[in-house]
């Protein structure tokens, strides 16, 4: 009985502490940074209003639709190509980096380190470095996306490969099969569904990110958004945003559907 009382007492204390923490988190920023949450909420609302008033696509903006769709298409192609090629490279790296498939512990560590470094360089940095090296063109955008993706996919693939039970690989080793036969006929079929799922997810993300990368590298849909925005053609910029939203939703739905099919 004493134990039970103690338990509930502790629980009450924990709840009280959590509430205090939440209150503190709410009050501290207001106090330190003079951020007023009520004001901020209202501010966001005002922002949306301003957007709605100025960015509503009009008749003139529809004239730009052809160019917008063309640039959007280019961006999608670049995002898909960069992600797919990064996927192939990441798979090779992951095979060398996963405990289950790696043959050299030193390489294993090298791959993990590389992937972690790549992941932790922000894409703005990539875009800027590449911009100075290759100037504004589609290849720069492609390379920026490619480099951003490699680290993430390598890590995701390593984790997927490490979920293959050791015994499954052993079962093929004892048939006298060689390394690449085991990879090709055993390991890859075992993980192809999760690998594809990661790839689709990354493509989905990269089409969104490609817009931002494009603003920096001056290519594709991001570039014309920037252009319209800076030349005060807000309705056209609004149309770009709508087109991007439509495409990302469509891609997200397709990719979700595809992943469901794959999971079966």
């Amino acid at each position: 009985m004493a134990e039970l009382t103690q338990f509930f007492n502790r629980q009450r204390w924990q709840r009280a502490a959590t509430l205090m923490m939440l209150a503190l988190l709410l009050v501290l920023p207001q106090w330190l940074l003079h951020v007023d949450f009520a004001d901020a909420l209202f501010g966001i609302g005002a922002g949306w209003q301003w957007l709605g008033k100025n960015f509503m696509p009009n008749q003139a903006a529809l004239g730009d639709l052809g160019e917008i769709l063309h640039q959007l298409g280019r961006t999608i192609v670049i995002a898909v190509a960069a992600t797919s090629i990064a996927g192939v490279v990441a798979l090779l790296l992951a095979l060398a980096g996963a405990k289950t498939t790696s043959r050299l512990p030193l390489v294993q560590m090298g791959v993990r380190l590389f992937a972690s470094c790549m992941r932790n360089i922000p894409f703005v940095a990539w875009a800027l470095v590449l911009l100075f090296s290759f100037k504004q063109n589609d290849f720069t955008g492609f390379l920026a996306l490619f480099l951003m993706t490699i680290g993430y996919l390598t890590r995701a693939f390593v984790e997927t490969l490490e979920e293959v039970p050791r015994g499954v690989i052993e079962a093929l080793e004892v048939t006298g099969a060689r390394y690449w036969q085991i990879i090709g006929q055993g390991v890859l079929p075992a993980v192809s569904a999760p690998l594809m799922s990661w790839l689709l997810y990354m493509i989905e993300n990269n089409i969104r990110d490609a817009t931002l990368v494009g603003m920096l590298t001056g290519t594709g849909i991001g570039f014309i958004f920037d252009l319209y925005f800076k030349s005060f053609r807000y309705p056209s910029a609004g149309l770009v945003v709508l087109a991007i939203i439509a495409v990302t939703i469509a891609i997200e739905l397709t990719s979700t559907k595809l992943r469901q099919v794959l999971a079966q």
């Binding site: 006298g176 036969q181 085991i182």
Partner: peptide, 16 residues
């Protein structure tokens, strides 16, 4: 079929 991988050529086995 995995049982015969050991007696196939590397490429044929890898590609199934």
């Amino acid at each position: 079929l995995h049982g015969c991988l050991g007696r196939k050529s590397l490429a044929a086995g890898m590609l199934g």
